[in-house]
Simulated assay, not measured.
Amino acid sequence: MMDTVDVPIISAHVPVYAHPGDAGADLVAAEAARLEPGQRALIGTGVRIALPEGYVAFVVPRSGLAAKHGITIVNAPGTVDAGYRGEIKVSLLNTDADHAFDVAPGDRIAQLIVMPVPRANFIPVDALPDTARGEGGFGSTGYTTGQPA
């Protein structure tokens, strides 16, 4: 059985999970907008939530919008902290070089993922423990001799 958390919400359109087991609940636009090629816009959802302390919500792109129309979220994932009480807005970006994209009220534009998040104690040290990866990053695991691994 999946754990649940109660999240008080003020919204005309409460986010819903499309399928059992989905991680993200759909957020819908509360306003219309037209995104020309390469343009971004901040779209209101009309959703305001009160996350419990120890939780965070992430606003993430919808894969169908990205695949079919090149629509993504500029600051993905957008972070909604437990203390935030304002409207959740989505910074959409049209990556399509040729076609505009119209957003209408009620269109599913993003997903909201609610997760527990622990507080970190940052402990200053002089050295970090070694790992097999070490300092390798930014593609260091994908190529060995110039050919894809």
Rank of each mutant, 00 (worst) to 15 (best):
M2T: 13
D3E: 15
D3W: 02
V5L: 04
V5W: 11
V7M: 01
P8E: 10
P8T: 02
I10C: 13
I10K: 15
S11H: 12
A12M: 14
A12N: 15
H13K: 14
V14L: 15
P15R: 08
V16C: 11
Y17H: 15
P20R: 14
P20Q: 14
G24R: 06
G24Q: 07
A25P: 05
A25Q: 00
E31V: 03
E31T: 06
E31N: 08
E31L: 07
A32C: 03
A32K: 01
A33I: 01
R34Y: 00
L35F: 02
L35H: 01
L35G: 08
L35Q: 01
E36F: 13
P37I: 04
P37D: 08
P37W: 02
R40S: 15
A41C: 00
I43R: 10
G44A: 10
G44R: 05
T45Q: 03
T45A: 05
T45M: 06
G46I: 02
R48H: 10
R48T: 04
A50C: 12
A50W: 13
E53Q: 13
G54W: 04
Y55N: 03
F58M: 12
V59P: 00
V60P: 05
V60E: 07
S63R: 01
L65D: 02
L65C: 00
A66E: 04
K68D: 12
H69G: 03
H69V: 01
I71G: 06
P77A: 10
T79D: 03
T79Q: 01
D81W: 01
Y84P: 00
Y84V: 00
Y84R: 09
Y84S: 09
R85T: 08
R85Y: 07
G86V: 04
I88S: 00
I88A: 00
K89C: 03
V90H: 08
S91H: 14
N94S: 00
A97T: 13
A97C: 10
A97Y: 02
D98E: 14
F101Q: 03
D102Y: 10
A104D: 12
P105M: 04
P105R: 10
P105A: 01
G106S: 01
D107F: 01
R108I: 07
R108H: 09
I109D: 04
A110C: 05
M115V: 13
P118R: 10
A120T: 04
N121V: 14
F122K: 05
F122M: 09
F122H: 10
I123W: 02
A127K: 14
A132H: 11
G136L: 12
G136M: 06
G137R: 06
F138P: 06
S140N: 10
G142T: 12
T145I: 14
T145F: 15
T145Q: 15
